[in-house]
Design a protein around this nucleic acid. Sequence first.
DNA 1: AGTCCGCGCGCG
DNA 2: AAAGCGCGCGCGGACT
Length: 572
Amino acid sequence: MIQYIADIEQACIALKGLVSESEIGLDIETTGLDPILDSIRLVQIATPLKTYVIDMYHVPTSVLNPLLTGGPIKVIHNSKFDAGFFYQAPDGVMVEPIFDTMITDQVLHHRGYARSLKDLSKEYLDIDLDKEKQTSDWGVEHLSEAQIQYAAQDADVLLPLKHIQEEQAMELQITSVVNLENRLVPAICWMERSGVSLDRHLWDELVKSAEAKAVQLKEKLNLSVAEHTSSGLDLFGNAIVSVNWDSPAQVKKLLSDLGVKVENTRHSTLEANRGKHPVVALLLDYRGAAKKVSTYGTDWKKHVHPTSRRIHANWVQIGSATGRMSCKNPNMQNLPREAAYRNCFRAAPNCVLIKADYEQIELRLAAEIAPDPRMKKAFYEGRDLHSVTASYLLGKSTTETVTDSQRQMAKAVNFGLIFGMGARGLSSYAQNNFRVQMDENEAAEIRRRYFEAYSGIKNWHELQSSKLETRTILGRHRILEGERDYTNRLNSPIQGSAADGLKLALINLWETRHQVNAYPVLTVHDEIVIETSKELAGKAAKWLKRCMEDGMREFLREVPVAVDITTKESWG
DNA sequence: AGTCCGCGCGCG
DNA sequence: AAAGCGCGCGCGGACT
């Protein structure tokens, strides 16, 4: 039964009954996808016996607030979308508690991608949702009967879906992960709606210099090729070279003509062939500048919102198969680490950005999960694991005599070998990323010594190799089949547990936000950045640190959690 | 003109 | 016996 409501009195009457429900299906139709520029047209609320379709052109959103915050569990598909609109509305509030059927589906199937409500309805309820009306015009004065019917249908499937998913979660013993993810939604919505501010002028300067550099290097490349081939110079002394330096295929062919035969033109390959032709070194430099121009160029600024003047990236709560988040439009998680780039992200006037990151979190988790007694000991004695590893590999008695480059080498070894890197991989990895010469035999020897020193890791590798599914400490699962997945068996529980801990930290921020006026603006796997006023900086820093420590400590019990924190006006 | 894929590379 | 993992994006090139 559907009741269409288009006046405040009717809405209030309906609301009185609804607030005492334990759970309701909730869906909205909007005039567009942007919660700042567009508005909510319909709110559909489903109970087991009755579905309300409320026309928000005649009812202020705030009338629904008592239902949205507190009260029944709101069962929503892709709730960040709906919550964003309610949060952004005049007198808006956060929707909670939430049960998100899209997120829950991802947890159940350890998917790094989301499935539509249509797909879930078909699979679990054998209901064919007609999505034709989804993109119809929701801004018209009089909605058609078909539009209202469609809207109600979408809300109707949510409660039955939740019950099936809860049962599945029980069977899979994954309820704790489902709960974590559902609690997280408001925090992510909060962060996304907060956005982050970009200093366009600083950014422009960087783009300008990258562009100049790219142009200059491209000229040098062309000249260099002209010198070494039959192609000549034009009347103005410019090289006549018709190779597109942004095309790996063309570059590969050109290198071949110059006597440098390569399998591919990726950085590591070029690095290995640096000495063979002057063009190679130039090409490496050009690649660096070209990447800045293309990926972090002037186009990047289009993501600044015209109204809020901030960047509201799309945070994907379960963005990977391991449970990590991802981020797009723009991706805030792969900006160049150079201070010049990160300093473009600035706090509002009289505010600061506080950046906090977990120190060596994956290695700490590996030490505890394996477990490896020696590695654990190094951590709870507060020693630097990379130096410790270097001293073991080099046969030194103390870590004091370890040089910086030796520590760098050990860092690569720690990351690589824990996650199943072989001798060949280690050899090329050391060469490519650390300019460390290490042939395959030497790499094999280092590998042998490594697992001698960390026998707990070795045992854990053997244990993991036969598993059909991995679990994080919280219980997040990933099904793995086939020998090929060996390294995933090692990586998933570690990467996933780190993700779980960070997510709990974000939840802690949201659920204790009354303690200090501050909000998160971005997060990068082991790092959270918040914004607050200068006066509150000290208090907020402590709050952030505490939330992060408490979150991760839930999973990292025997090895200490270390959070490094810095406060500045910018992110860099 | 639009779509898809591989390559390469930025980050953790 | 051997095997690093996880993303998003811009580009070229091939296809429709």
